[in-house]
Design a protein around this nucleic acid. Structure first.
Length: 270
DNA sequence: GACCAGGAATTGG
DNA sequence: CCAATTCATGGT
């Protein structure tokens, strides 16, 4: 199997930090689905072994070239944050397929990770094609335009989000999504929020986890909780205010700050 | 501004 | 165990 060297990287923490939904523990690694592809990755110390995709792709996907030392340096004045980052130094922001990411986070509203996984697997099974890697079969994630049956979308347990997914499927294209990368953060966010079911939090997730932006600071209940504890002055602020507070505090690396805080707080005590 | 949609997961008693 | 609460968005 081909390999890559990845220092101070942790595959498990990265995958389990709530960024993507179609991955499955397999043998002593993971199978990962992204649109038409299905690939396998396993970590052995500083070495990543992979199969089913090329080296350039997986390096980009896992954020292995992110200047993480620089990010930590620029955040080092924030002692609460550094505590979280030190506990999970191997987390990276991943760069996933924007369309699949968008639908995943539309599913995420008022939901939870196991259920989102079921929604996404269900839509792949109903609308996607068979794909195989290492003798395992999964289904690809459908393209924009292919998720065209509201009843089937409902049947995967998406509930009131089904009509948002159906609506997004009608108006979004891959080209439109890629075009957002060239815009500024506020402009790209404004565009994304035109999609039904996409508010401030979900657009920030898509910008951060698929379109390469680093300054979004998506605020969900876990971030709100953690920020209230770490920065008491945020108590009583609504999510929009906390988002502004976080971006003001952490600046261009607010996205990484958010990811450290989220994973740390969710894994606290248990 | 408060409530609901649909429902599994999580928390509280 | 069973009941209450959680949860992001858009519409009323």
């Amino acid at each position: 199997m081909p390999t890559i060297t990845a220092k101070r990287f942790n595959l498990k923490d990265t995958l389990d930090s709530g960024q993507l939904f179609r991955y499955w523990p397999h043998e002593d690694g993971y199978l990962i689905g992204q649109r038409k592809s299905l690939f396998f990755v396993r970590q052995q110390g500083d070495t990543l072994e992979f199969e089913g995709c090329d080296k350039r792709y997986i390096t980009e996907f896992l954020g292995l070239n992110d200047p993480i030392a620089e990010t930590i340096r620029s955040l080092k004045g924030h002692k609460h944050l550094i505590k979280a980052a030190k506990q999970y130094p191997g987390i990276r922001l991943i760069k996933q397929d924007p369309w699949e990411c968008l639908i995943g986070f539309i599913c995420s509203s008022a939901s939870n990770i196991p259920k989102i996984k079921r929604n996404m697997d269900g839509m792949s099974n109903l609308f996607g094609d068979r794909v195989e890697t290492r003798d395992e079969t999964r289904h690809s994630f459908p393209d924009p335009g292919e998720i065209d049956d509201l009843g089937k979308i409902r049947s995967t347990g998406t509930g009131f989000r089904a009509k948002f997914i159906h609506g997004a499927n009608k108006i979004v294209t891959d080209n439109w999504l890629s075009g957002l990368k060239k815009k500024t953060y506020p402009e790209a966010k404004k565009e994304l929020m035109k999609i039904p079911g996409v508010g401030s939090k979900i657009s920030d997730c898509v910008l951060l986890f698929s379109l390469g932006f680093r300054e979004p600071f998506p605020v969900d209940v876990w971030i709100q909780r953690a920020m209230n504890e770490m920065y008491p002055q945020t108590k009583g602020m609504d999510p929009k205010k906390i988002e502004e507070f976080g971006r003001g505090l952490f600046g261009k690396d607010a996205g990484y700050a958010q990811q450290y805080i989220y994973h740390w707080r969710r894994n606290l005590k248990s």
